[in-house]
Design a protein around this nucleic acid. Sequence first.
DNA 1: TCTCTGCCTAGAGGA
Length: 906
Amino acid sequence: MHLRGPVASISDVEDTPGDRRTVTIRPDKGRSDPVAVDLLGKWTETAAVLDPGMEVAFYDLEDGDPWLADRSATVVVEPDVVVDVTDIREWVQCPRQYYLDKLTGTPLAYPVVKGTIVHEVFGDLLRGIDSEAAVERRVHEAGLELGLLDKDAATVRDDVSDHARAIEGWLAQGSLPDGGQQFAPAESEWRSEITLIDERLSIKGRADAVRRGAPVELKTGKNTRREPRFEDKIQATAYALLLSGGDREAAPDTGTLLYTKNAAVERTEIGGDLSPAKDFSIGDGLMRFVIRARNEIAAMEAQRAIPTGEEADATCEYCFEQDTCMALAGRLDQHSKAGAVGKALPSAEREYVDEFYDAIEAERHAIHSSFTDLWEQSADDRADADRALVDLDPCGRTQRDDGRWELRARSTGAISKIREGDIVLASDGDPVGGSAELARVERLGGSPADASGEDADGTDASEDAADVIVTTDEPLDLCRLDIYPSDIGVDRMLTAIHDAVLARPPERKDVLFERRAPSFEDVDATFVPNNDAQDRAVRRAVAAEDCALIHGPPGTGKTYTLARLVDALVERGERVLVSAFTNRAVDTAVEAIRERGVSVVRMGTESGVSEPVADCRLDPAGDPDERAATLREADVIAATTATCGSRVMREQSVDVAVIDEAGQLTEPGALAAIALADRFVLVGDHHQLPPVVQSDPDAGATLSRSLFERLIDTYPEAGVMLTKQYRMAQRIQAFPSREFYDGRLRPADGETAAQQIADLASVDAAALPAHLRRRVAFVDPDGDDEGAVNPREADTVEEIVAAYRAAGVPDESIGVIAPYRAQVAAIERRVPESITVDTVDRFQGSSREVIVLSFVGTGSLDGPIFEDYRRVNVALTRAKKALVLVGDREALESDPVYARLVEWAD
DNA sequence: TCTCTGCCTAGAGGA
């Protein structure tokens, strides 16, 4: 019998305290009567971490009243929280270490980098790659990190080769009894690097390797004892559980831990035991221990509690994290088993850390809930929500030279959020129960003809004509792709809070905590002769001793001003970091900076960096010394804020961080860049789109307000607003200027102000209907919305676009904006592919001569998308010469702001 | 009721 529901109460059973606890839950989402379950034996430890209101799931209960959870049952606390295997491992070492690791992240350290390389080589060996070639390539790929650690390639290759030999020796030993030949990985026997998710236990992880169904875990550190380390056994046991789909009876009964450093040491020093492998048996008790540890983590996350370390039996004096642990306890005035050192932060700072910690964890929870969609939603629902591509038709696979597999399939042409370069879960159709692999999307969409024509490696793709291509470590039938939620973004927000608040001296945080207004030195220079506001903005930013704020409404030359500023800073000998939330924004800034003759080192992934600036991207592969020197000596480094939180970037320091599109950044997001710099300049517009936050509005409120907005409210004198706009005709600009910018926005010159559609050389204005000749028009097609789609409006948009095209407006000058993706898709089906149709959010940052805006909503305007005036502002300010609003008059007039909008446009 | 970008993913080790 299985039961699930929120906990109503927990109580000891009187006769047998400690041995038995009664937990009552309300199944059926809490609507039905409470049901009692008695937890026996070790499960009482899980009962001890429960609080009323927490969700709990029971599997395989014994019949009775109350139901009995004995040793054959399984208890899962907060099943919606998906816990990582490595988190369980750390928690078992010390619960506080789990917390410290979340907050401080992993620093750039040689043993970690080497460990990663050895693991990659291990995978290569299992895939049949030659050892020497694998070592050579993997060390080459880690060039930048090794260089920053002052390691040279030859030394590292020797180091890694020692481990590789130990692995090969063991692999050869394992195959001796069978045939006595050199090791050759048999397909059915071995699998490398498997991604595992279990819906029952809500645990996920990635096993190094699986041999004959049993987990093999590689450890490159030292283990001087005869026995495997307990936490290593826990890790391998967790993988054993995942391999059996949470069914403990079916789980493999042994696991193998491969301590490669031991083998190297033993061979040279004592020449003894050549086998680095230690097998251990996986019993039911160990597996239940793993589940209880997982439950403790889930319960603590639900309570947002901070572990003290007392929960564990670990000895603090032998712990590597002791210093960090004590320092953090001191700063945050926490109790910790190791004790505390140093002075506590002022209470305002502690409250700030607490508030953001909670908000970031709520965000993590929201991301995790999309994980449980993987098994709670049907494939069709996931496809409808754009979170999966289903019904793929597998049509080929090849193993590449590097051992990885290229899988090909034909798609149904459906739309999803999955894009090229993304890491997704590829599966045979069942991502949880079936066979699934983490995959990288190499190609998506495009006509199959393209796919067949240009395969650089000479694969004959013509017979399969695939439009979906992914790469994986192991082959499978490619039938489905799912978005794989990642919490790396929240991880980096947390480390940014640590770096910017916990690890910084107090005086560097005065402005952030509003204890002192920003100060400025005297700078007497002219930077932009023909634009007074831009000139003042650059001067203010150059003069800033703490921070400056540049407020740039649409079309006001924000990017130019930013580039001019970076140029001026470099001229003064400063080292500058240029950052923004999106790759697109970073690349736009980089292009403008390079146009001024300033060279930039762009950090980021190959798929993230756009083509025009790809030549200045720092490829991490290469000679360590040379790679590190390029980064260390760069005057200007450009990276997204997420990359600023990477372990390579956290090692860098700069004089000034210049952050673009700052209105779109959460406060911790901005801190990731600010933490690397002495001073910072935020460039943005808080009247355009705010940060994207997934948690619900209550929990997300803390993250929804950008640092830019907070500082511009607190220190208006630190900001300069750019007021001359070079984009819109005066008629178009009038409403947004009045409504959102206190009427301060004005056209840069008469030509900008007076521009109209007839100015375009190719246009015959006489061919246009009268209302489309105007700069602003309103059309009410009298349609009906069906949720997020309004077909009549889509038809009207089609007619308007056709009219402009017929009059000679080039396709690339026309843009169509709709609030919902569904409406975007409906319009896309009606207009030529060469016309850009997109959501407001995706249109931010660009503009067109003509913009057609479809509002969709009819009747009344309820829908949060319309509540945010910032979204409307963005939509209205994309047009240069003509703006056509298509919407339901009655609905729009029900809201005062929209009523004024209609009046203006009509 | 809906908008949605980052980050290769997790896990790499230190006595």
